[in-house]
Design a protein around this nucleic acid. Sequence first.
DNA 1: CAGTGGTCTAGACCACCAC
DNA 2: TGGTGGTCTAGACCACTGC
Lengths: 259, 259
Amino acid sequence: MAAIEAPKSQYGQIADELRKRIERGVYPLGSPLPSELRLADELGVSRVTVNKAVTLLRASGDVKVRRGLGTYVRSFPRIMRDAKRRYAARSLGTGAGEVEVRKLNLTSTTKYREIGRVGSPERVAQILGLRKGADTLVRRRVLYADGEPTQMADSYFPWTIVKGDGSLLREDAGKGGSYSRLADLGYAPVRFTEDVTVRLPNDAEQQTLQLDANQPVFEIWHVAYAEGDRPVEVCIHVMPGALWTLRYDWDDDLAAGPS
Amino acid sequence: MAAIEAPKSQYGQIADELRKRIERGVYPLGSPLPSELRLADELGVSRVTVNKAVTLLRASGDVKVRRGLGTYVRSFPRIMRDAKRRYAARSLGTGAGEVEVRKLNLTSTTKYREIGRVGSPERVAQILGLRKGADTLVRRRVLYADGEPTQMADSYFPWTIVKGDGSLLREDAGKGGSYSRLADLGYAPVRFTEDVTVRLPNDAEQQTLQLDANQPVFEIWHVAYAEGDRPVEVCIHVMPGALWTLRYDWDDDLAAGPS
DNA sequence: CAGTGGTCTAGACCACCAC
DNA sequence: TGGTGGTCTAGACCACTGC
């Protein structure tokens, strides 16, 4: 099989070998891998060792297991999320949520899990400049592409500024999405920040996003500011890492002076 | 405890339990966990099961193993990388590379692995608008905080525009770093883009960054553009995911119209 | 030397799926 | 009912560490 055997674990080598076969098309996109028992037999190792290799492939998003059925090669391309343009898209149709997925000719679906008035989580209150537990309007949703979950997104708005707007309490927030409603209320977002981290998913996220315990997710804290640096929305995105590429761009700030 | 409890694997529960103990300070930061054999004994499971739990803690960056010694609780805080400000920092001292680490009162070190003239990798050539394999100046380096590797960074410059500048061939590129040298040459960067993905590290990265096969890394493709959208640098960062928070901010673009 | 984690095995039982 | 992956065990050998 391999010419030179590096001092590497068998399961590591097997993972590499399987990746190679996927690249070469021995196991085409969307097709099932041979069963772990077969692979163990072919490669002359125990099933546990094969399973450990497959665990790596799952963590990297190269394969996906369907329980009771088999292990399948991933068929999704990475989705590009252009931070700047996705929000600019509100000048056209609906909100930012579904822009990227449609570009890939995939069917985009949004499922709302909660829309209503709730006390804000501590960190959210802090960012929005509210008292701890102060009322916020929350919109919690899950987005899908061709039926597969691609992200969870929880938006929080200070209740004091959105209470007069009923459309934010409906699933369809109307033309241009929630940011257009904020604009209607006199709080048009003019500046955004995003903090990006990677971590492993918790139990709820594993279930909602159909992930394993060792598949990393992006966590993005998106904050929208209106005129006068007034924070008007916090949106927390949780997205399977293997599915996304995040794009950012900005102009140099040297002219404005250091801060 | 929980209202509805999903049936969960023992190793998953053990991972949760260990995380709890770390949070509560039962195992303080920097201290060693009990050995896997002890834990197996205490928890009434096999050592393999404990090991699988520890594997999860390693993937999330909560613990770090020292071979032959034991498993230690991780003590590093996350490092904030503010994309905009780090480059603005060149107006003061050295380049962007060490800004963040110093903020945390950690010792920052840079080790150069290669500085010289090389044929550009395909994707780099494409971004820089060069012929495939065209000459570039490469600066490949590894950054450390308190002796621990925090990122690999490989910068590529079109050879045609930097060949006249010797300081870019030295480790210390001079006051303000390489971007100031580009400015000297008449190619001051005015715009940047970054594409961010997460993936598992390859063999070389595992070794250089002291990572396990299942610890995710950020891969950032940073591109600097001079006036007239002329690409003048591509820098590829590979950074342990558990160590970093990436921050971006930008102004709304609606006024400029959609693209 | 003894203790640590790294790895591998053979065998076992389970839940899930399609037929 | 048979095939799939999910999990767990007891036992084993190894490389590495510090003493």
